[in-house]
């Protein structure tokens, strides 16, 4: 009887194919991903059957926390070429040098910087003081323009910028974890970096929220035609709030927008089907 010889096989598994697949997947995720924006409070938006997508460029997001603090974030044009293309449309004979100089003018940083400058000017004017007395240098403004989502009284911007990046983030996360009483106590102390853009009901002139929104509108009208167009259509402003938040908390935001005649805007929702 012949013996059946069992050939010993190596247990090595060839990982090349696996590696190919993972690299493909990785490429896919890298290209399709838009990073989750760091937000000072996490809210769960209500759902609707609307299928219109939230724009990621040329939009002002107004975030209302469950306890009523307001945060604003402004996103400019994501494509650095957009402004140059627009300049070319306006003037087909534009020289190459001017064309290159136009590039990147509509980026988030640049529009935010203009807005901050505008709001400081308006704020100082409303208070009857000089903008310089707010103590914010051009470097401070440039630094502030890098912050995606902000929400603090204009007075506290200087204090906020003095904090390190980590401390800045912690200000919001710590605040979000407080009870409503603690929050009130925190915001009552002028030594703290208070959280939320102040929106007092009555008072002389415009409140800070209105100043910010009006500054955004002004700056858009002046230098950012695409942003202005989005604002006029109502796509340029998106209000985001938690679905459990009582209407009384969000109503002041809508009311303030109405007061400064920015009555066209969008509300952020998640998608659901008609059966839900």
């Amino acid at each position: 009887m012949g013996k059946v010889k069992i050939k010993r096989k190596s247990t090595l598994i060839d990982m090349t194919a696996m590696s190919d697949v993972t690299v493909l997947l990785l490429t896919f995720f890298m290209l399709t991903s838009t990073f989750l924006q760091k937000e000072p409070v996490i809210v769960e938006t209500p759902s609707s059957v609307q299928e219109q997508k939230v724009p990621t460029s040329n939009v002002t997001n107004i975030l209302v926390s469950p306890t009523g603090e307001v945060f604003i974030s402004v996103a400019g044009e994501a494509d650095p070429d957009a402004s140059a293309i627009y300049a070319k449309e306006q003037n087909p004979d534009i020289s190459d040098r001017d064309y290159l100089a136009e590039k990147g003018k509509w980026a988030s940083d640049s529009i935010r910087r203009d807005i901050v400058k505008q709001v400081l000017q308006d704020y100082a004017e409303a208070k009857g003081i000089s903008p310089a007395s707010l103590g914010l240098t051009d470097a401070d403004i440039a630094q502030f323009a890098k912050i995606g989502n902000f929400g603090m009284p204009i007075e506290d911007i200087k204090k906020f910028l003095a904090l390190s990046q980590v401390e800045q983030d912690q200000t919001f996360t710590k605040f979000a974890a407080m009870t409503p009483e603690q929050k009130a106590a925190w915001n009552a102390n002028r030594n703290n970096v208070r959280v939320g853009i102040p929106m007092p009901e009555a008072g002389k002139g415009l409140n800070e929220f209105q100043l910010w929104m009006r500054a955004i509108k002004k700056v858009a009208q002046r230098d950012y035609p695409k942003f202005d167009e989005a604002m006029k259509k109502g796509e340029g402003i998106a209000v985001k709030a938690d679905k459990r938040t009582p209407f009384a908390t969000i109503h002041p935001v809508l009311d303030n927008l109405q007061t400064i005649r920015m009555n066209k805007f969008t509300l952020m929702t998640a998608l659901k089907s008609q059966d839900q």
């Binding site: 838009t34 990073f35 219109q52 939230v54 998106a238 509300l267």
Partner: peptide
């Protein structure tokens, strides 16, 4: 990543 983008509801007050 956020695969699901938020939707918006337009409103004119």
């Amino acid at each position: 990543t956020t695969m699901l983008k938020s939707q918006t509801l337009k409103i004119v007050l």
